[in-house]
């Protein structure tokens, strides 16, 4: 039951079902601590479903349930005595479309921290979080303005700042740059390299170049003939993009998968 300390989280035969339909089947992944792991694969292969299962976000979907194990520090996050809210505190999430709260920049960060019982110096936490998200210099003079006044790229970094404000161990990112322009995208990727000094990152991306540029490990997913998604290859990102072992990975990364 114990998972090794070099892994932040690991799944054992993890499957996700929507009612009778199995969307993701038998995933065994060991996510290394303080590294960036990318999940790639064609549309509908279960990447996002798998990612969301890592912080029990799928609990919100009616009929969705998981089988198998998801181990974090030896604990199965799907066991009955685990509080999913606590799981989401330890494992934060950044979504495809920036989704700041309709509040000030300051409150976007302070709010979650306050709810989580943060008792320290809030100004410091806000500044530190914004600095870590490489946003401080751009917003320090307008902390009380609405978060909606920021550009898309800035909003996404604000969402990242909001996530780190509650000090998670793992950050899940679901296509965090797909709604952003190329420069904002590169900025997010650079930020990820900074963040991995303190956080383990799992990212789902459709952009293969992004996975190649930004991640240390890559998991390739594909559906089987029952339309259940699974991880077909997991390796160093370098190997996945230069010498993949599975023909299907080869076809996907070279853009020949129909």
């Amino acid at each position: 039951m114990q998972n090794s300390p070099s892994y932040a989280i690991e799944s054992n035969d993890l499957s996700i079902h929507y009612g009778a339909f199995t969307a993701v089947k038998g995933v065994n992944l060991k996510i290394e601590r303080l590294k960036i792991t990318a999940i790639i694969g064609p549309s509908g292969c279960g990447k996002s479903t798998l990612l969301r299962s890592f912080n029990r976000m799928n609990d919100f979907v009616p009929g969705c349930h998981a089988t198998g194990e998801l181990l974090m520090q030896g604990q199965n996050l799907y066991s009955k005595d685990i509080d999913p809210v606590e799981v989401r505190r330890k494992i934060g999430m950044v979504f495809q479309k920036p989704n700041p709260f309709p509040k000030s920049i300051y409150e976007n960060i302070a709010w979650g921290a306050r709810i989580n019982g943060f008792k320290g110096n809030m100004d410091e936490l806000v500044e530190q979080s914004l600095r870590s998200a490489a946003l401080w210099d751009e917003v320090k003079d307008k902390l009380q303005e609405s978060a909606y006044a920021l550009s898309g790229g800035q909003q996404q970094r604000l969402c990242i700042a909001r996530t780190i404000a509650i000090q998670p161990e793992i950050i899940l990112m679901d296509e965090p740059a797909s709604a952003l322009d190329p420069i904002s995208t590169l900025r997010i990727e650079e930020l990820m390299q900074e963040l991995k000094k303190n956080y383990t990152i799992l990212i789902v991306t459709h952009n293969m170049q992004q996975a190649a540029r930004a991640s240390d490990y890559t998991a390739m997913m594909m559906i089987d003939d029952q339309r259940a998604g699974g991880v077909i290859e997991f390796d160093d990102t370098k190997n996945i993009f230069t010498r993949p072992k599975d023909k299907r990975t080869e076809d996907y990364v070279t853009g020949r998968f129909g």
Partner: peptide, 9 residues
């Protein structure tokens, strides 16, 4: 074309 894998090699 951003070649990958076999194409890149």
């Amino acid at each position: 074309q951003q070649p990958m894998a076999h194409d890149l090699r």
